Amino acid sequence: MPLRLIFMGTPDFAVPTLLELVAHGHQVVAVYTRAPKPAGRGMKLQPSAVEQEARRLGIPVMTPGTLKTPEALAEFRTHNADAAVVVAYGMILPQAILDAPRYGCFNLHGSLLPRWRGAAPINRAIMAGDAESGVMVMKMDVGLDTGDVAMAERLAITDTMTAADLHDALAPLGADLMVRAMGGLERGGLQLTKQSEDGVTYAAKIEKAEARIDWKRPAREVLRHIHGLSPFPGAWCELAGEAEPVRLKILRCELASGSGSPGDVLDDNLAIACGDRAIRIVELQRAGKGPMKSAEFLRGTALKPPARLD
């Protein structure tokens, strides 16, 4: 029998999982997501990506401000769900909510737990120079991503990958994994394994102060820092020697040959010296402008030696 599911998610990363669950015949009886937020020029209320998809599918949408009240728990229980599927929901689930569905709540997490528990696993994996990432389905408990693991899929991280690239690769991989996990739950064959206590790391929320590029670091670390923050919030630097600071977000780069004082522009093709070797800027964004390839940027800005980036 297909499962009665509550789906809990907010950003576009969660949408493929919702769609796959519906496509595989599970009955999604309610969608919980974050309330609409003001966005855009007119600051109109913008529903989440998950809410938009749920309404298109005709699924009832709930946007409670908290799940910690007796009223929220009572409403949650009225859905009589076999399980809840949670993908980047953005709110803490109290124990009473975790216990409400027949089989519990199952979370899709974008890392290879116990590495990168927490808010920003995709960004942190790239920034740390990890060779691989992945997705895991775990049965939730009250800890921070500490629940028992049901299934996992791995994915190599290359030096060409940005956070957006890894996000877009993991989202469908995770959707397929969650469908398989719910299939196992439906058949009564889903096995759970306790997480190891070795290798625990925490993926703290990205802070604005982390985004400034330190050209004194080795080139590969600079590259991974840039790619781990691309496109948002975007690693940035400033063009030195201008009357007013010109901020540049670097969105994509590659390793390059050459050396010099960290931050030096080494040629007329946007090779920039790092503490060890260099990187070449491939895509960037000037303040107030849209993203552009380096060739387009150079047509409007002459940036060559002896210029430097601070």
Score class of each variant (00 low, 15 high):
106 F>G: 01
224 R>P: 00
172 P>S: 03
215 W>F: 15
135 V>Q: 10
274 C>Q: 05
120 A>Q: 06
108 L>F: 00
45 L>G: 09
47 P>G: 03
90 G>I: 06
85 V>I: 12
178 M>G: 03
97 I>F: 02
21 L>M: 05
189 G>A: 15
102 R>D: 08
31 V>C: 07
302 A>E: 14
264 D>P: 12
12 D>G: 02
25 G>A: 04
75 E>A: 13
170 L>R: 06
178 M>N: 05
138 M>K: 01
51 E>C: 08
9 G>K: 07
198 D>F: 09
27 Q>P: 01
81 A>N: 13
65 G>D: 10
141 D>E: 09
230 S>L: 09
61 V>M: 02
232 F>M: 10
112 L>E: 11
220 R>D: 06
9 G>Q: 03
80 N>R: 15
81 A>R: 06
126 I>V: 07
111 S>G: 15
140 M>P: 05
96 A>V: 13
54 A>Q: 01
291 P>F: 05
178 M>H: 00
45 L>F: 12
287 A>P: 07
98 L>R: 12
146 T>D: 09
18 L>C: 10
156 A>M: 02
146 T>Y: 05
82 D>P: 04
119 A>C: 04
271 A>S: 15
34 R>M: 04
244 E>L: 13
91 M>I: 10
129 G>S: 06
192 L>K: 04
249 K>R: 13
88 A>H: 06
53 E>I: 05
244 E>G: 04
189 G>W: 04
262 P>I: 04
306 P>Y: 04
232 F>Q: 12
111 S>D: 00
41 R>H: 13
99 D>M: 05
194 K>R: 15
300 G>I: 02
200 V>E: 12
178 M>Q: 03
202 Y>R: 14
109 H>W: 09
